[in-house]
Design a protein around this nucleic acid. Structure first.
Lengths: 209, 209
DNA sequence: GTCTATAAGTAGATAGAC
DNA sequence: GTCTATCTACTTATAGAC
């Protein structure tokens, strides 16, 4: 029986509530209620609600920066690539409250805007790295203009897939399955793979359905 | 000098404020302030804030249903298709407040959920119609599995492009250029066009940059 | 560290005069 | 139709006892 510190319990409960109800709909009172602690106690650990949000964002940011540190000039296999996508979608899903009401959240916590944008840029850059690696290995054939468009599209999809997916079942917002997202991302790249690789990629992608 | 009724002025101002500040950040007081009328006056015309939101949604819904009534079994040209996309992005941009904080808005105005989902389904169906028309004309070559994935991707992009685009410049949220969105949508389809059409589509798409 | 009590501010909405 | 004044409810945050 490990005893989790109250401070951490607050973070965990907040993340869970934010994800299922949307950050703007979660009050500090609701968080403390959920944990059976007093609101005063919550404010002993965090001087404001925005501190909680910012600390959760920092955790997300750290995870993403770690994940997105894709080395250049390395040969990436299809399996590594789909695994990367899987981890990416998993991380986004765990902090999906950020994306569900993105404009609202970013406008109320202005300090996050720059950092969020930096993550977006890194994401696009990571996709570009991957595509260029695949091209060097002659697995992918794509023109520069198409590559730009594809990488933007991959970034957009990485951001919004899970929100888009939850739209279909807004009633139960607890569970999110990252699989369809990975499938969709793979299928964005499929047309640009050379024929052999294309079939292989389709096979891999189907595992994610 | 036409005199616009106060009721309509409220709708217009609300839409504008919702789009630029995000619906949750716009209070009824702010709306009445913007119009130099009293909050009481606003509540004379609308019995609640949600009435304003729902009336704006109804207008959006009507526009979309009109636009999405794509006839089946009709030959669609590339130009018609890109024009359709243009109109679609324009409509979405004009009501972008709905998409910017979609989960939040739909969870606070529950009655909109079903209707929004219906629009989403119609959107996907419209894209499917278009693609199948292009396939019948032998302009597009695509397998069933790819078609499913493509139509979903088109729907996702139609929903979120303008939100995604505003992320880059969150400071000035007044103007939104639908062009890039159309370009991006065209480029999703480009790989599936037959070679001749592909070049033509690329040319058309560049006009939207 | 945790509680209770409460302050301070803001939102949506109503009542009643003009 | 429009205004002023006001109510109620809720949210964030603080003070001070245990």
């Amino acid at each position: 029986m490990t005893k989790i510190k109250t401070r951490d319990r607050i973070l965990i409960a907040s993340l869970s509530l934010f994800n299922s109800l949307g950050e703007p709909n979660v009050t500090t009172l609701l968080i403390s209620d959920e944990l059976d602690i007093s609101p005063g106690n919550l404010y002993y650990h965090f001087k404001s609600k925005s501190d909680i949000v910012e600390e959760l964002f920092a955790a997300f940011e750290a995870e993403m920066l770690d994940l997105l540190a894709v080395p250049e000039d390395v040969d990436i296999s299809l399996d590594q690539q789909s695994f990367f996508l899987h981890l990416l979608f998993e991380a986004v899903a765990r902090y999906r409250f950020l994306y569900q009401d993105l404009v609202n959240v970013l406008s109320r916590y202005e300090r996050l805007q720059v950092r969020f944008n930096r993550l977006l840029k890194k994401k696009t850059a990571a996709f570009r790295n991957i595509c260029e690696s695949l091209r060097r290995q002659e697995m992918m054939a794509i023109e520069p203009e198409e590559l730009d468009s594809l990488c933007e599209q991959l970034t957009l999809t990485a951001c919004y897939w899970s929100s888009f997916d939850t739209l279909s079942h807004l009633d139960d917002r607890e569970s999110v399955d990252p699989g369809r997202g990975v499938y969709q991302m793979m299928h964005l790249m499929v047309p640009y793979f050379v024929p052999d690789v294309r079939e292989q990629a389709k096979l891999i992608s189907r595992d994610y359905l």
